[in-house]
Design a protein around this nucleic acid. Sequence first.
DNA 1: AAAATATGTCACCAAGCGGTGATTTATGTC
DNA 2: GACATAAATCACCGCTTGGTGACATATTTT
Lengths: 197, 197
Amino acid sequence: MAEPRIRNREATHAALLEAAKVTLAEHGFQNFGVNAVARQAGCDKQLIYRYFGGLEGLLEAMGGDVATWLGAPPVATEGATYGEWAANLADAYLTALRANPLLQKLILWELSAAPGKLAPLTQARSRAMMQWVVAARGDLVMPADAGLINAVLVAAIQQFVLSAAVSGNFAGLPLRDDADWDRLGAGLRSLVQRLYP
Amino acid sequence: MAEPRIRNREATHAALLEAAKVTLAEHGFQNFGVNAVARQAGCDKQLIYRYFGGLEGLLEAMGGDVATWLGAPPVATEGATYGEWAANLADAYLTALRANPLLQKLILWELSAAPGKLAPLTQARSRAMMQWVVAARGDLVMPADAGLINAVLVAAIQQFVLSAAVSGNFAGLPLRDDADWDRLGAGLRSLVQRLYP
DNA sequence: AAAATATGTCACCAAGCGGTGATTTATGTC
DNA sequence: GACATAAATCACCGCTTGGTGACATATTTT
């Protein structure tokens, strides 16, 4: 019935990888599985086992180019203070994450899955984000409590974006249109500059 | 085979509700369903349909006593500044959420589920948390940007707790034993006091 | 005691899942 | 052109899920 796809191992391999990303980004991790990915790719699920050894291998393969999901980090402004740099980075992460449903779904999945099940993907993502930050930081010196402050910023941003995606707000703050996000960005910027005097 | 449970509608009703909470708290929302709840309650799933009209009704019923999940809010200290009060509240929420796997799973579920599917529970929880805060605030006057600052605090705390539950850390910060959490609490307190001068 | 009702259980259905062996068929090689 | 290999599909398995109708029995009412 269904016309078999043209025979091309490389292309099919790539198509499966792409289908995995699309499936996760569009439908979340809840219905993510061999059937859903194969459906999205338009081929038989057997090929997932043949080419990746199963879902596990497919996830590992996804981790391979996870670095490209984030895009290029913003460059550190010449002569900027650490506070300005941190504010810029927060802003950049906020917009990047907001525009990246795949990354959102992955973060959510990591929070929901049994520890270890997503290890390869988690490690790849964590490494990629570290590089993102390090590449942007240049040779700025970190204040003493920068670790905590930045963790709070990143954590809050993630929670905002994830909550907004499902309910359009967080703790009373509306997070729907661009104006809402602009307000939030400006507010965060002022907080950051107050925290890094 | 299985001895039928003694016939008592009230008790069975309550047992199902309790089983729902236990199932969610212990196994998360991923495997939450009529089968799992009925298994936990030790009765037939049919009773869920008879007494609650299905999972939906069971969730609504769970929303009924969601207020009791949080426990009593900390009382506002006499003559305290808003900054001190906010720091206390952050501390209280951090420890309360950390000790409450059911609430953790519910928050995670709300972030992962299709909007609307959890509406009754979400509304009940949001209302309960509002009351928690309002009851604690007393008649302290809120600074101008308190809404944003508190949102950032709550968001960060939630992300910390959720991430710690699955991976034991967040963005490099270790969040395993009590000492880790004490350090985080102290750090947050200092940040709060810097933000509310 | 007999009948009616309420409570609880069982047996089954269709659908979806992860996973696997067997089968077709296009492609490259001799 | 005949053959081997590799790419893709098909057909099926066991299991779990949400959901429902039929059944058994304890409890109350008549």
